[in-house]
Amino acid sequence: MRSAGRLLLDGVAVIASHPRSYDRGAQIEEPAHLERLVTEKREARQHRDTDRLTKTVPASPLLLTQAAERGGRLGALTRELLALWERYGADELQAAIEIALERGVPHPNAVRLALEQRREARQLPPPLAVPLSPAAQQRDVPVRPHGLDGYDQLVDGRDSSDVLQGEGGHDR
Rank of each mutant, 00 (worst) to 15 (best):
R73P: 07
N109T: 14
S21N: 12
S160L: 12
G89K: 12
H146K: 14
G11D: 01
A16Q: 13
R87T: 08
H33G: 05
P125G: 02
D23K: 10
R36E: 02
A59H: 11
H170D: 02
G72W: 01
V130M: 05
V143R: 13
Y88N: 14
A67Y: 03
V155R: 15
P61W: 06
R24S: 07
I28E: 05
Y88L: 03
A135G: 06
V12D: 13
A32P: 03
A67E: 02
V155S: 11
L34K: 11
L8F: 11
E35T: 12
G157S: 07
V38M: 02
P31F: 00
L8Q: 14
A44E: 05
Q123C: 02
Q27H: 12
G150P: 14
T39M: 04
L62R: 15
E80F: 00
H170S: 11
R24T: 10
R70Y: 03
G157F: 03
E92S: 14
L113Q: 15
R48C: 04
L81K: 12
R118H: 14
V143W: 03
T39D: 09
S60E: 00
P127H: 07
R45Q: 10
Q123Y: 03
A95R: 15
L77F: 08
A26C: 06
Y22W: 08
Y22S: 12
I97D: 08
L74I: 09
L164M: 10
S133A: 10
R42I: 01
S21I: 06
P61G: 11
A68K: 15
R112L: 04
I15N: 10
S133N: 07
P19V: 11
G104S: 10
R2V: 08
G157C: 03
D140F: 00
K55H: 13
L64N: 09
V57Y: 11
E120Y: 05
Q117R: 15
Q94Y: 04
E35D: 02
T56E: 09
Q66K: 15
A13I: 13
D171A: 11
L128R: 15
S133W: 07
G25L: 08
R36N: 05
Q153P: 08
G11Q: 04
S161W: 08
P61Q: 09
E30D: 10
V141N: 13
S161P: 05
H47Q: 12
V143E: 05
S3Y: 06
L124I: 06
T56F: 00
K55V: 01
I15V: 14
V38P: 00
H18W: 09
L7A: 14
R79S: 06
A26L: 06
R2N: 09
G150F: 03
H33L: 00
A83Y: 02
Q46R: 15
K55W: 06
L148V: 13
P31C: 00
Q27F: 05
P125H: 08
D171M: 07
A16S: 14
P108D: 00
Q46S: 13
A135I: 06
E92A: 13
H47W: 05
Q46V: 03
E69S: 12
A76H: 11
Q66H: 13
Q27P: 02
P61A: 06
L74P: 13
D159W: 10
A90V: 03
R158M: 10
A16E: 12
G71H: 05
R42P: 09
G169Q: 01
R2W: 07
A26D: 07
V130C: 05
